[in-house]
Design a protein around this nucleic acid. Structure first.
Lengths: 259, 259
DNA sequence: ATCTATTTGTACGTATGTATT
DNA sequence: AAATACATACGTACAAATAGA
């Protein structure tokens, strides 16, 4: 299964003839990496080597390296034995990069919950009966973190963030990297970018109690390997959470995310 | 709703004290952009201005600009009136950036179809009764593009790619940017990265016929505003498509994606 | 602990390319 | 056609970090 490359930017680029040199060099370096089958942790040639190999000046090479670094593909260290190293794109970086895409689109709470309400149940169902005792205990500990309803909207927000971590923990157990990433991404977007308009309203303790109840029942369904039960509990849970957000008139704020 | 910024890389960073200068500068420039409320198309200060403003040399500024460019946040033009301009991150770039994240994870066909099988039906349901006649016609035209079953596995692949475009067209109609992006992302991953192991096997014409049938019925359900009908048709469609992929022993290949 | 070698990081000056007027 | 304004690229020099002797 030899890795292949797709070259860059064949799309229209204004009136210019093509990508700038650093971008071209960055592409060539990617080629070189894949051709030589470099794995993560492997060292790339030094700046000096790259200069002679590609016949480019130092600045150009460095700009190319910054491009690869910005994409999360390499990390660079100084000193002897230093240099640039192939690096697996981190989840955090991928999150930030994707988050920037949505900077200009105005994503709403409803948009995210539309996805959550189908993805979270699917995740729950797929995890039924496969979690270790440790994982189940960690989930229980998360639920126990707060046993009283929130006193004000700010505490409500705290509770919500802890609850989102519950979902991130679940996602981390998935064997599906795409599903894991998305659940995690949505949870982060919600905890980073959500503000509550009704800051002084009394939180709805009844809905909170139900959300907590859902989570507890979910953990037991997961333990028992009851996939369809887990799916339906999570589905109800999402509906409740969504409603709670609506009651708080929660909104997303516009942000740049820089890893 | 004043935009805010999250600063970069508070995470552990080896032994070093912090991000390199260009990264810091890139962050500061992001700050500057958001503070001044620059919108897409707006011009950033020239290199010379940035040099004095941040007290950095040209090379450092340029590396910072390459970082922003690699993330798709700016585009740069030469010439008078040229410079760097705020640029909405394109869908293509976001796709490529996210695709790189999965370069090291080994995503399987099953992973993607697990998501498709819940997201596509949700998309279908949400589009029922809201599509224009033009949009419906475009979908019908896509279905009509091939009216005969594939003769060999290579044609089977062509059919599959056209069918994936059908789903991308649907996604483009969604008012949910996140849902749209994801459907599109998965369709691209499948059409770019899929290879068929059973290249010489006769394609299954019966399954193909059923898939085609699903699409036609789906379009009419969408026209009639039958959300639940559309959802269930799409759900069946996904199951069939998944099975088809399994019969072809389809696999994902490992690739770098450079926009 | 100090020096030394290695490699990236920063700075600056100059020349070239490119598009607008 | 020429002048202008900007990015692009090069070369060199030196600073900073780090591993090893």
């Amino acid at each position: 299964m030899p890795p292949v490359i797709t070259r860059s930017d064949t799309s229209a680029r204004g009136l210019s003839r093509g990508p700038s040199r650093p971008v071209q060099v960055a592409d060539k370096i990617k080629d070189w990496v894949v051709e030589h089958g470099l794995k993560r942790g492997d060292r790339l040639p030094s700046e000096a080597e790259l200069m002679t190999r590609f016949g480019m000046a130092k600045g150009t090479i460095r700009e190319a390296m910054r491009i690869l670094e910005a994409q999360g593909l390499i990390k660079t260290r100084t000193g002897p034995g230093g240099g640039s190293f192939v690096h697996e794109v981190s989840k955090e970086r991928a999150r930030a990069l994707l988050g920037n895409y949505f900077y200009f689109k105005d994503l709403t709470i409803a948009d995210i919950y539309q996805l959550r309400s189908v993805l979270e149940p699917e995740l729950a169902a797929s995890l039924a009966g496969v979690l270790s005792d440790d994982a189940l205990d960690a989930l229980r500990a998360n639920i126990a973190e707060f046993d009283t309803p929130a006193a004000d909207a700010e505490q409500e927000r705290e509770r919500h963030i802890v609850s989102l971590r519950f979902h991130a923990m679940l996602a981390a157990q998935s064997s599906n990297p795409l599903l894991e990433f998305l659940i995690d991404f949505m949870a982060c977007m919600l905890s980073d970018l959500t503000v509550y308009r009704r800051l002084f309203d009394p939180p709805n303790t009844e809905l909170w109690q139900r959300g907590r109840d859902y989570q507890m029942r979910l953990v037991e369904a997961l333990r028992d390997g009851d996939a369809e039960g887990a799916r339906s509990i999570m589905s109800d849970h999402m509906r409740t959470a969504w409603r709670l957000m609506e009651m708080q008139e929660a909104e997303m704020v516009n942000r740049f995310i820089s890893e």
